[in-house]
Amino acid sequence: MADESQSKDEDNTSNFQKVQQTQAQLEAIEKEIRENQPLTSELKPIATLKAVYNGDDNAKFFVSGVDYLSTLYQSTRMTRGDGSCYYRSFLYSLSEHLMKNEAELTRITKYVKESNSAVINVGGYDEMAIDIFYEAIVEFFEELPKMTPEKLHEELTQENATSDYCTWYLRVLTATFLKSDPSRFLPYLEDGYMDIATYCQTQIEPMGKECTMVSVLALAEAFQVRVQIEYLDGRPFEDKLTRHEFGPEESLTKLSLLYRPGHYDVLYATA
């Protein structure tokens, strides 16, 4: 009896130590990512994607997938793998498109400017909680027409600044869109989520949480833009990679993004 309780104690202690070790390892990985990956990279040739897989015999479909991508796209822009990669890729790609299309810029700036009442009334967010983020994204879109590509890159690569502030507001817009039509989105949620509000609180609002399919869909529809995603996931394919498209087909703004398992980057079509 005494032995049993002692071994249970040891189990508890070692579990506790394991939890602490895992926590420490996770923190070390996060730190390394912060130090080595910019929020968003400079443009890189598509072939750069191959470097990761060179010499790996198991990565045959990744390598041939990159070959396929290079027939359609000339470059990629990589985002930091910190859980916000989808939102950062979306924001960067959207900004670049809007700099080239005044009508769309006007439409989207108007949508963002008028979004605060839905965010408060439908999303249920406190004005105090959202206002610095709302102000940051409105200011960002208003400044866009005056920005050079270099300035845009500087804005969106700076730590604890525009990219983070806009990213959180994009999360809030995603959540608000889901909350605007719960019966439609409820069946899409991963197992174990019984209501949209809890899902938003635990899976969308926290900065480190990765964007899931339902959020990709919601964000595209909220902005009324077309998002096409190429899936470079290593699965066998014949002549084309899988591509999924979200948002209205007729939208004048079409964003191209790349999915690799657990991560999103921006793609640039060959002119």
């Binding site: 406190d126 809030v172 609002e205 926290p206």
Partner: peptide, 9 residues
Amino acid sequence: KKEWSPAWG
């Protein structure tokens, strides 16, 4: 920690 968001205060 992980579940923090600016919606809290």
